[in-house]
Amino acid sequence: MEGATGGPARLVCRNVWKLFGPRAGAWLAANGPAPAPEAIAAAGLVAAVRGVNLEVRAGEIFVIMGLSGSGKSTLVRCLARLIEPTAGEILFEGRDLLSASEAEMTRIRRHKMGMVFQHFALLPHLSVLENVAFPLEIQGMGRAEREERARRMIALVGLAGREGAFPRQLSGGQQQRVGIARSLAAEPELWFLDEPFSALDPLIRREMQDEFLRLQRMLHKTIVFITHDFDEAIRLADRIAIMKDGAVEQSGTPEQIVLLPATPYVAEFTRAVPRAKVVRLGSVMRPPEGPAPARSLPATATVAEAAPAFLEGAEVVGVTDAAGRLVGHLDRRAVVDLMLGG
């Protein structure tokens, strides 16, 4: 599968299992490699993550989407090794995190990983500035340097001027901005966001999503983003993995998932999604035949973005690739079919 951003794999997760319960490791080793859900339940264990394989590429936004209880939060904690997986491999920049010593893990978390939490996890006794500077303080960075860097992060998320405030004095959206600034303070390469906007009101959520996309355009982090909101996943993701009962149901680009849901479960989510907002011109164009159209749009544009051109009267629109070459034609009929058929 080709993603929108096809960088090298930065974080790889191979056949990761997490079973809760007494002596889960020994049981899995004896009954592995992939026991049936009924067998797990019969052993008195609870399966939170079942045989997950993922590849997160450098600089992409990888969204893990699932309803509550689907194991997505456990999975992201396994990726950061906050929870010890029962079995499997987690490779970060080519080395297996599960064999790293506690001290190595501490070093990796301090310098290479950042995490944003659903309920912000701000320390109530520290000001905004101190909260953002906290990861740096833990690393032992001097006051002047860490406060200078924290101020920069606070300005980055648009909270300049509120450095002296305390978490209780901020709105939910502002608190999460602090959480984002804090997770970026150590300049991590790998950025985990665990349902960062789920606790916010819908309008604020939308605003924060835009803010997040703006930051990512500047920073190009490798991101694992957890959400239970399918629309949010579609909106933000370069690629999505949909989880159910601890296993990945389907993974791919938003377009692939919406156009070709692999299971009825995934289809449930995609049914209400307006196709035009997800499908890109490259997927619905036909080979370029006939006269060259007057207007052309990039293949990565969504059908919804192309709709105004047809409203202005065009019958055919040209589709160009990244280099600007004409690679296909798009008919009005194909657009109407897609928009009405969705």
Partner: peptide, 24 residues
């Protein structure tokens, strides 16, 4: 989440106790 935060920023055990848990 606060405990997770402490571990994610790489707290040592003493830092975890005195900088995160007790204040929280």
């Amino acid at each position: 989440e606060i405990v997770d935060l402490g571990r994610m920023v790489g707290c040592t055990r003493a830092q975890m106790t005195w900088r995160v848990m007790v204040p929280a």
